[in-house]
Amino acid sequence: MSEAIALPRLEEEAQPRPAVRRIVGLPRDAWPRILMPLIIGIVSLAAWEAAVRVNEVPPWIVPAPSVIWATLLRDWHTLSVSLWITLQITFAALAVAAGLGLVLAILFAQSKWIELSLFPYAVVLQVTPIVAIAPLIIIWVDDVRLALLICAWIVAFFPILSNTTLGLNSADHNLRDLFRLHRASRLQELLFLRLPAAMPLFLAGLRISGGLALIGAIVAEFVAGTGGRASGLAYRILESGYQLQIPRMFAALFLICMTGIAIFLVLGLVQHLVLRHWHESAIRREG
């Protein structure tokens, strides 16, 4: 999808008005990318619907897609409130992970000693299963929302930290020599050389962390199991399970999936827009 959105921009840059055949505003070769997965999706849903109806499977075992959709519309009010809460935690965690990951990576790039002393602890955070430490965090932190945020952050921040650290250290050696030759300060080297060089890896890390932040938020909510008005999608799934409201469980699951896909696509688009002028990953090869 991200490519499908971005392709016309590249075409525009190459020539003022290229002779690319467009169908409903998209280049012709972009359509298979959209149509093929869509056809697979529709066929699968139809097969699912048919199987449930033919075999008369009760909705509390496997609900038909039509029932799930009807439930989604009926319970939209409750579900949308929960969706909003999950989104808030996810994006707050992602923002903190990006900010803190970037700052830590810059610190690591300044001194090998800081990196050597702190990096193992970042790995410890990364390899400790969040399900195992989430209960502790929820006990220690009074504010449940803050506890959830911390859990999601722990899961999300490592890819950004490790990618950005690698990126900051991967600036071209000759360019570094050039900066030295012109007596650049450390700040100048960081701003004009290391940070731009790290950008592709930072964005790749951000894209991984986007999905992880959502997973972290959901897992932490499961562990916390907080009820009441201010509860996210994970709690709706737990609640629906207890009440045997299986269609609603599926509807919440559907929303989580859609959120994950949306985060992935949006971050992919950001990546493309930032890198499209120069980085190999964002450049479409001609011919």
Partner: peptide, 27 residues
């Protein structure tokens, strides 16, 4: 001093103008 490397050693994220202006920017 001016130094020309074996490779062009340009910053891929910057335009030709910005690449050439780099030493002056550092000053």
């Amino acid at each position: 001093l001016g130094f020309v490397f074996q490779e062009p050693t340009l910053m891929p994220w910057a335009t030709a103008l910005a690449n050439v202006a780099l030493p002056l920017r550092l000053e």
